[in-house]
Amino acid sequence: MKRAAHGLICLAVIVSMQSAFASDAIELVDQTGATVRIAQPIDRLASVYGPGTYYVYALGAAERLVAGWFIGMKGIAHASAAMFRFEPRLDTILSFGEPNVEEMVARGVQLILADGSRHAAFSEQMTELGVPVIQYQVETPDALMEAVLLTGRALGPGPLERAHAFVEDYERVLAGVAAAVEHVTPGDRVRVLFLGTDRLQVTSGEMYQTRLIEAAGGISVTAGLLGYWNEVNLEQILLWNPEVILIPPYGPVRPDDLLEDPDWGAIDAVRTGRVHRMPRVIAPMDTPVPESLLGIVWMANLLYPNAVDLDLAAEVEHFYTVYYGFELTEAEREHLSGQ
């Protein structure tokens, strides 16, 4: 036991000395405010933060990933066929559950991307072992752009260039959608309810989904709620009486479940048939992943079918080709473009 501890300490000292003396280390401040010193270049990294894994793919550094957490995938059985086309090495890098410190060391990881709200203790342990950790906190579009830039800086010149391009694209989409919904008067803004993995589970005002609805010119009826997912009752939903109900691409809820339920029949969205489930091929677009910019376009078209007509198909093609280097099948292209 004692010897093992000694060994661990020696290892930590050696690793930290290496990084301390590396000539071209960079320093950055992550989204928890921690200063992270990262030796360059990074050849092996792990992302224990689900959305963060997709930042690495968007920046073209996928081959350096030795372990990754993928949103909603707890084991290879949860992976779709598209995911295997997206990442042929999926069965070797896919990880889930609580990250394990020793496993990270064993895989020779040089950098870890982590969730700032969940991995504080883990990050401290890894930092003590000399492995730098970037912790993310992304619940707004600005934070997403910052997160992608941070990742780019950590991964080197190539990825950083891609990160800048992504931020430009995201800002262009935001501006385009804002211009398209500009002439919608405040009174005509559509009231949207965003559900979770249960029909009585809704997003809070502090979540990324609410920011996407706002960016698409809608009003989230649950914007006043605090915290994370909230459980509500049907009476409250009747009280909110949303005009559109959106269902995330994960979870068991389907539009027909609500459209065919007489209990929900009195709600405007159900009466007019405006209940929609988000499309998904790779990552869910309502979460703080790069393709959430497509989510904004999809939502804006959906909320204002008469006033807004953005070219979603073109944005989909551009995003998957440029950032993921992923060739969509015809069916996937149609699915994502909402046709």
Partner: peptide, 8 residues
């Protein structure tokens, strides 16, 4: 439980 707050 169902009336005090917007969420349950």
């Amino acid at each position: 439980a169902r009336t005090a707050l917007p969420s349950e």
